[in-house]
Design a protein around this nucleic acid. Sequence first.
DNA 1: CGCCTCCTCAACCAAGTGGTTGACAAAGGT
DNA 2: ACCTTTGTCAACCACTTGGTTGAGGAGGCG
Lengths: 123, 123
Amino acid sequence: MAADPLSRVFAALADPTRRDLVARLAVADATVGDLAEPYDVSVQAVSKHLRVLEDAGLVSRSRDAQRRPVHLEAEVLDLMTAWIERYRRQAEERYRRLDDVLASMPDDSDSTTGPTTERGNPS
Amino acid sequence: MAADPLSRVFAALADPTRRDLVARLAVADATVGDLAEPYDVSVQAVSKHLRVLEDAGLVSRSRDAQRRPVHLEAEVLDLMTAWIERYRRQAEERYRRLDDVLASMPDDSDSTTGPTTERGNPS
DNA sequence: CGCCTCCTCAACCAAGTGGTTGACAAAGGT
DNA sequence: ACCTTTGTCAACCACTTGGTTGAGGAGGCG
């Protein structure tokens, strides 16, 4: 399974059931049984989902008698927002610069096809 | 494949190669060949990755002769940040309230074990 | 002690994923 | 007109995934 943390977090949240679990855990800690109840899948399936979330660092399980209360570790979410925001902003910045270029260019029928012209090719 | 848009976006970014593609596309549009060059996988593999990104709405492909310049559609990222932020904030809020409760409670040796006590059990 | 509850582990299965290779369409270059 | 470049489609493969059932461990309860 994907070694890097970021992939694990993204993958963990790529499942609707898992996202719903996170949503519910944002409200309150809960036991596996409580969490499983609304969905019509087995408790084992939910337990597996929780393990995925745990491996992603999104959730922690402690002990309370036979119960294993699940707790949301929300900090990991910042990892994602950091990544996302970085590139969203970068893309925005690029569009802004492109607009500037286009604005300062009266008309040039060759470059209207695409911005491919200013590509910085590696190697 | 996961029907809902949010799952598709999360799943799309759960792969390091795909995240790298997004990162590079944030800088500039590029052709499939350009994008494939740095990785030591086939062009077909990259083309597949791009399709996943496209299905997630993260990327669009146009035409320029035989080339198919790929363009990043950064707006979809907001879908994710919206989701993430919502629950991160909700969790934070909860911790704040819990702190308040604990602060207003001098000492109660029974409730120190866990916050399980204030669980709102359904049905 | 014996049972019942809560949960995980193990084995299995169908479907999806990331990769490969091979064939081929589309468009230019010569 | 050919050949080359650029990219997709299709078939195939190993592996992962989300689900199932069955067994079992850990810990109260009568």
